[in-house]
Amino acid sequence: MDFEEDLANDSEGALLEGTGKVASNLSDREEILQSLDSIHSQINQELNTIGQAIEHVDAEELPNDIEEFSVGLSDYGAELSQFIDEYRHNLSAQSEYFETLSSEEADFADITDGIENVNETHRAMNAHWYELEDTLISMQEILANFEMPTPQEEGE
């Protein structure tokens, strides 16, 4: 197990200096968050596009539920943003926890308490993510057949 290996190799800097597999995993998950940031940015861009379409395109040419969908997408973007912030905060806390274990003062209770905290947070975040993911999948299904003219084309 990576954690066990890193604890054993702590004297070589696996935890404190981030040369171990745990640090590598933290880095991987930070990359995931950056990807989620990218998704969030794209959602904002699409919301902007929808906003322009509502403003400039004849309403008859737009899908009936475009405004309702826009609100839903906006809410989703906000929730995703909150999730990203929360996850990033937890990731930072986990990183601090692993660094704490490098301290000479760290004892067995620090290990077990930290593991409990990490797991509790992880379960909560996973449950939250599943909800977000389900919504994302639903939106994907709706948008698969969601067509409209682009504002620029309408302007021409």
Partner: peptide
């Protein structure tokens, strides 16, 4: 000209297979 909007465009390439678990295989 109509264009289909697909949210799948939001999913970054290679992102799907990544994992959030320390105990699982690495993203690499």
């Amino acid at each position: 000209m109509n264009r289909p909007w697909k949210l799948s465009a939001f999913v970054v390439a290679g992102f799907v297979a990544t994992t959030l678990s320390i105990t699982s295989v690495s993203a690499e």
